[in-house]
Structures are given as C-alpha cells and as structure tokens.
C-alpha cells in the first residue's frame, strides 16, 4: 500500500512521456526532409513480410468461427444466415482486433527490440552525430508504415477470413461461391465496414508509436532490450482493446451502423 503512490506516479510520468513522444510524430511528419527510402523499406518489412502470418490467421479465424456457430445456427434453423453472421463479425470486430493483436505481437515486439538494441549499442547516438534526426529517420518512418500497412493487412485478413468461412460451410454442407458472397454482401453496408476500417489506422499508429517509445527508452543492457520488446507487446495489445472500446462507443454515439 505504501508503494502505491510511487507506482501511480511512475504511470502518470510514463503516460506523459508517451503522449509527448506520440504528439511529436505529427510535428516531425510534416517537417522536411521526408525519409522516403527508409519509409518504403519499413512498408516492405512491416506490411509485405506480415502477409503470410496475417493471411493464415484470417483463414483460421473465418473457418473456426463458422464451425463454432454452425451447431447453434442449426438449432435455431437459421443455417442460411451463417455467411451474414460471420462476415459481420469478421468485418466489424474480430478481423480488425485479432489482426491488430497479431500485428502488435509481431511488429510491436520487433520495433521495440530493434530500437532498444540500437539504443544500447549507441547506434541512435551515432545517427545524431551523423546529422540525422533519429526520431524522423527511425520513428516517423516506422509509425507511418504501421499506420498505413495495418488497414491493408486487416482488409486482407477479412477477405481470407471470408474464404475460410466459405470452406467451413462446405465441410458440412454445400454452398456455391457466388451464393455465399451474395449472402455476405446483402448483409453488409458501408456503415459496417467503414468505422471498423478507420479504427485500424489508429490501431496501427498505436502499435508503432508504443513499439518505438519502448525501444527509444530502453535501458542499458540486453535485459533492457528484452523488457522493451515485452512491454511494447503488452502495452500495444492493451492499447488495441482500449481504442476498440472507444471506437465502438463513438460508432454507437454517431449511429454509424
């Protein structure tokens, strides 16, 4: 109990530093010079190299969801509504959240460990000495790549998830590809897809900024690098849930659905 105020003090201090770090992104983003080459390299690493994992996760997500809901839907005699139910679940909630969590595990930890290791081996200092703004070169490029790549990955995971659902339905029954997608698109509107799509940009930004913040503030030694990677994953996963909660409330408030 005695330590509680100190712990809260630390949390408040850390939150303040994180907010400042996160805000600096928007200041540095619009200042010349833009590190285009490094940004494209990060898009490749963060986006393209995550395609396999995200695609596989999306497929399993759709397949398992279909297999799990089928008995209940059968019980109520609404088996024909499975494509609509699965697609709405995937597009509105499960696809963005699960993909963002996988993304935070893969990319958040990798950014935290990479920048942490660069910090303890003085590579960040070396950049500064070489006339480079390390925040601009390392943070802006990574966070921007995360912000733009996660929505693409989520969209891909959603589509592959639908294909997984189609396979799931055909394990026990028989539905044509055209009929399955007709049922999917009849059930969905832009109001289902757009708010969920927009929140993935915020998820990407949060994962990127938290990974960079933890890496940049890594303490000396290999233990510090490990802690940075670990806390980057934990904190960014938590941030995904908190942002999701806020996004759902905002969507309801403005009656987007």
């Amino acid at each position: 109990m005695i330590q509680l105020p100190n712990r809260w003090g630390e949390i408040v201090e850390e939150t303040g530093k994180l907010s400042q770090f996160a805000g600096n992104f928007f200041v540095q983003l619009f200042r010349p010079r833009f590190e285009g080459k490094e940004f494209l390299r990060q898009c490749y690493t963060i986006g393209y190299l995550s395609l396999g994992l995200v695609g596989l996760t999306g497929f399993i997500m759709g397949l398992v969801l279909t297999l799990q809901v089928r008995p209940i839907m059968l019980q109520y005699g609404v088996e024909a509504k499975i494509p609509a139910m699965v697609s709405l679940s995937i597009f509105r909630e499960i696809g963005p959240v699960i993909t963002a969590l996988i993304f935070s595990g893969k990319i958040g930890s990798s950014i935290g460990a990479e920048l942490g290791s660069m910090k303890v081996t003085e590579q960040i200092d070396a950049m500064e000495v070489s006339g480079t703004n390390p925040y601009k070169f390392l943070v802006v490029t990574r966070v921007l790549a995360c912000t733009l790549m996660l929505p693409v990955l989520v969209l891909l995971a959603d589509l592959i998830g639908l294909y997984g659902s189609f396979i799931g339905i055909n394990i026990h029954g028989s539905t044509s590809f055209a009929l399955f997608f007709k049922q999917v698109f009849e059930a969905m509107s832009f109001g289902d897809v757009l708010p969920a799509f927009f929140k993935t940009f915020v998820f990407g930004y949060a994962v990127g900024i938290i990974g960079c913040f933890k890496g940049f503030n890594s303490t000396k030694g290999t233990e510090g690098v490990g802690k940075s990677a670990n806390s980057a994953v934990v904190l960014s996963a938590l941030a995904v849930f908190i942002i999701d909660l806020i996004a759902v409330q905002v969507t309801d408030l403005f009656n987007f659905t």
Binding site: E122, Q123, D125, V129
Partner: peptide, 15 residues
Amino acid sequence: RSKIGFLFQSNALYD
C-alpha cells in the same frame, strides 16, 4: 558535427 568525428566505444555500426 560534420567537422568532428566520433568513434563510439561499441562501434555503433548500423546492423
């Protein structure tokens, strides 16, 4: 800084 060189203890080569 372009006129002052700095050799870091850990070399600080970009991996």
